[in-house]
Design a protein around this nucleic acid. Sequence first.
DNA 1: AGCACGCCGACT
DNA 2: GTCGGCGTGCTC
Length: 802
Amino acid sequence: MNIAKVIVDVPASSINQTFDYYIPDKFIDILEPGMRVIVPFGPRKIMGFVVGFVSESTFDKLKEIVDVLDITPVLTKELLELGKWVANETLSLSIIALQAMLPQVLKSTYKKELVKKTDLDLPVELEYLFAGRDIVPFEAFEQSNISYNKLQKVIQAGDVTIDYLVKSKITKKQITMVKPAKDSHLLEEALVDLSKAAKKQKQLVDFFIQKEEPIEQKRLLTILQTTTSTLKTLEEKGLIETYKQEVFRNPYNDDRFERTYPLELTDEQRGALNPIKESIEKEKHEVFLLHGVTGSGKTEVYLQAIQEVINKGKEAIVLVPEISLTPMMVRRFKGRFGSNVAVMHSALSAGEKYDEWRRIHQKEVKVVVGARSAVFAPFENLGIIIIDEEHETTYKQEDQPKYHARDVAIHRAENYNCPVILGSATPTLESYARATKNVYTLATLSKRTNDMPMPHVEIVDMRNELHVGNRTMFSRKLVEGMKERLKKNEQIVLLLNRRGYSTFVMCRDCGHVNECPHCDIALTYHKNSNRLKCHYCSYEENVPVNCPECSSDLIRYFGTGTQKVEEALTEIIPEATVIRMDVDTTRKKGSHEKILKQFAEKKADILLGTQMIAKGLDFGNVTLVGVLTADSMLHLPDFRSSEKTFQLLTQVSGRAGRHKLTGEVIVQTYTPEHYSIQLASVYNFSDFYKTEMAMRRKFRYPPYYFLALITISHENKVKVIQTSQKIVGLLMNKISQTTVVLGPTPSPIPRIKDRYRYQCMIKYRNEPQLRMYLNKIKEQFADEMRKENLLISIDMQPYHLM
DNA sequence: AGCACGCCGACT
DNA sequence: GTCGGCGTGCTC
């Protein structure tokens, strides 16, 4: 077994296979599958993952592994298997699947250097380039105007070589520690010798006489109110020593969290928890769908289930949507399990993420709370996986590998014979359908733990507002409600459901809309820079003064941004203070938290924001929630738009009246009769489920059918259409009778970055060979994809149909 | 992907 | 002859 099978770091379909390498003797005892290695690949050196060992290879001229990057495998055997499964399931490259399971810093970067190998002089230009050095970065050559032939000559002569370096960008944080260099009685002697003026030095020596342990330099300096110069002098005198020590960055100071204890469960909660406990106890894989209204105490069920898992010496993964990974959520888990919790989300720096990952890898924690990718946490004794807000679309990764965390979670849990909990107030139709068919076990929490009723929801027909001459974006009912709350010193949350809308510029005379010259999409108006920007490429331009079509100067801004709403709001209710929360105001790290804190401290009357305010907020003083445009995403070309609308309205309604005060919700809409708005307003999930299921069945959508979306793109429109038609033709020959292939049709955004985009949708019920067919099709076009820059992207079970 | 190699046309 | 551009095939 002296040959390693390696997946190399080259994301190309022709390289999507293992490569064999000899293992040098010095590595034979230490190398394990799951470790990263550096291997020669053609003329260069690249990183690769060892996935297995063999004693013979079909390939006869093997090279040797150059170096081993890890002491312990970064990928466990299970994760290697999982990677294979993910790659297969999502039709992505193995290397992409493996990289997705690790923190960014473990990715390798590559660098080339020119090395001078002779003492003799090179041709003048090259001598000038080296400028006396033996090694120069390759970029220096590229930036010079020396011809490649010149370089080639000296390389062929052996006077210069190209070194291909593999760099791992691991960053370990180090702190400086200080410790006494001598025994305390020797220090006491030294103390006498110090000059009287050296007050600080004396203090410092005295400090170490009292306490002989090492201390962090930064802390020492604050305690003694001195600077590094004092330390330096004493170090030179040989009384103290400083040294560097590696530390884990802890983005959360664990002492900060107040310890919490298990709460008494309601009957409903107990009813939900018991079968989960049983599944943990019997080590039986089972998926639980925990359908609980907002405020029904789902989290407490999670916490107690996790406690059970920890008691058994096992580990837990908790997935939450990125957006609700708020300090509040973290506090609940840290408060219960203390330093046993690692937290993984995008607001952490790359180094912090790596540290949290290492704490898991080194088995220092038992619980991970994190966003989508935390589903790959390198635990080896998993006892439960919990997915909170199961319906959130962020669980589906948009770029390669296009996996769904729910599927990965269930697959892993099967391996470990452990339960999965899917929790939501508004489960996806997919999950709920499985629960009704007893594939999943359903547990319902229908009551809020505080026994408060759900707030009353009032639907306001905005068409009537127009009829009576109200042209603002606030209905009379909403304005009245807000004024009333202000009088009572209560707070208000306003949701601007902006998805599908953005501010664009339109000419009122001829209706001309400024579009991106490279993408078929309207440019978005950005107020702070007063420019028009494209959201799909980097194009931007100034706002025109006159219409480029008809030269009219009647240019108007359309669509509604939070900024605009805020302005309108201050006009109507000038006495109200407003805090805005959207992508613009939360871009900076920690600003999310800051805004919520301000609002919690009642520094403002109204919190105005986009989707992100719909989740996880819990303010006792909020008694009115207003939804400005409930139907703005109802008309998007997405078969899930009704479901998404229902989910959003239900979620946001849960924000009002969380505590003692009763809440009210006002929903403004132009389509008040729509079932998703009607049923959300009376919290009727089961009727919504039935109605929507009937629609899905009729139009052959999930959960009745599975989907695969193929997107074809190329600079040449004709090429795209031809290729798309060819692909559909090929598919038609293979698929079964019940499978439907739609298209090819232009994508909802027909052109991005000067590339035309066509798509076809496959709807299927039972097509066990589909992945194989699709792979074959991709293979057939591999040549064209490479040579002509044709792109074929396949998304299994897509969420974004763009 | 990224690199080398080889062929070709253009330029001095 | 020398230079740069592009198509092609290979990577254990």
